[in-house]
């Protein structure tokens, strides 16, 4: 047992050292663009754009979003075909995990919006899955070729401002729909009071994921920072991001949806109240 452990440690150290030497000897591409250009492009996507099936050029974030969607749908289809038909009343580990995830979003919707929660549960489930998997997606470092012929790593879908705006606006629209469903036309007025959610939700997502992306880009730009530090900055922070951002957006959406869709009792007119008071006296 002790021998095995010693052998593992020796092999691990040798592999690590080999990788370290290899990384120093391999040709570096860091001289191609300055860190300012690279970071500016990470925010604005002015130069590194990708062709979408030859129809138009889009930001890499949209390609990431499509890839994440395909991955999620294929995984869901596999689960639907191979796992769900074998579900048992006493669940196994994987079934328990699935039920836990679905139950978590369902409960989030039910506890925050006891009045209407069928649609909300489905929405927060999809949004949560998209943010979580989309954020983790950048860890895999899938490459795509830009229109200029460079290779870029596909970023998290929501580090693209367009993706973040889409999810923020959509969440706000869901909240408005809840307000209308719960209170009719009066609900619109109620929802408009919280119009700042449009910007706060969109840019919270964008800011959080972009900052992660920028820090990661920055760390990897300099070879001296590319050892040990990425374990914390790249992986642990990304994992935390994935959890925190999916929780924050889904929780906020559910919370505001519940608040807006809560039926408010109709206010009696002042005149009626006066008449009622007079009759009481």
């Amino acid at each position: 047992m002790k021998k095995k452990r010693t052998r593992f440690i020796i092999i691990w150290i040798i592999v690590t050292l080999a990788l370290l030497v290899g990384s120093f000897l391999a040709p570096s591409g860091s001289g191609e663009e300055t860190v300012q250009v690279m970071m500016r492009d990470a925010v604005l996507h002015e130069t590194n754009q990708i062709s979408l099936f030859g129809i138009m050029t889009v930001n890499p974030g949209l390609i990431s979003a499509i890839t994440v969607t395909v991955i999620l749908l294929v995984a869901a289809a596999c689960i639907r075909i191979f796992v769900i038909p074998k579900f048992k009343y006493v669940p196994g580990k994987f079934q328990m995990m699935l039920e836990q995830v679905v139950g978590m979003f369902d409960n989030l919707a039910k506890t925050n919006s006891p009045w209407r929660n069928g649609f909300l549960g489905a929405y927060v489930f999809a949004a949560g899955a998209f943010i979580f998997v989309g954020t983790l997606f950048e860890l895999f470092g899938l490459q795509a070729i830009t229109t200029e012929g460079h290779s870029v790593t596909l970023p998290a879908p929501l580090s693209d401002v367009n993706g973040a705006i889409m999810l923020g606006v959509l969440s706000y629209c869901v909240i408005v729909s809840g307000a209308i469903a719960g209170n009719g036309i009066r609900g619109i007025g109620k929802a408009l009071k919280e119009v700042s959610l449009l910007i706060s939700m969109s840019f919270r997502l964008f800011g959080a994921l972009l900052s992660g992306l920028l820090v990661t880009e920055l760390v990897y730009y300099y070879i001296s920072l590319s050892f040990v530090l990425p374990v914390i900055v790249g992986i642990l922070f990304t994992l935390l991001h994935a959890l925190i951002q999916s929780y924050v957006l889904t929780m906020l959406t559910a919370l505001f949806y519940g608040e807006m869709s809560e039926p408010t009792p109709k206010k009696k007119k002042a005149r009626h109240e006066k008449v009622a008071k007079a009759s009481e006296i």
Binding site: L52, M56, V58, N59, L62, A65, I66, V68, T69, L72, L73, A76, A77, I79, R80, L98, V102, F105, G121, A122, Y123, F125, A126, A127, A129, F130, P157, D160, N162, G163, I165, M166, L167, V169, L170
Partner: peptide, 22 residues
Amino acid sequence: QQILLHLFNFAILAGGLYLILY
């Protein structure tokens, strides 16, 4: 345009996940 493409993509994802998994 890209916002709408993101929205289209998310609509497919949300609908698919709802029908297939949720």
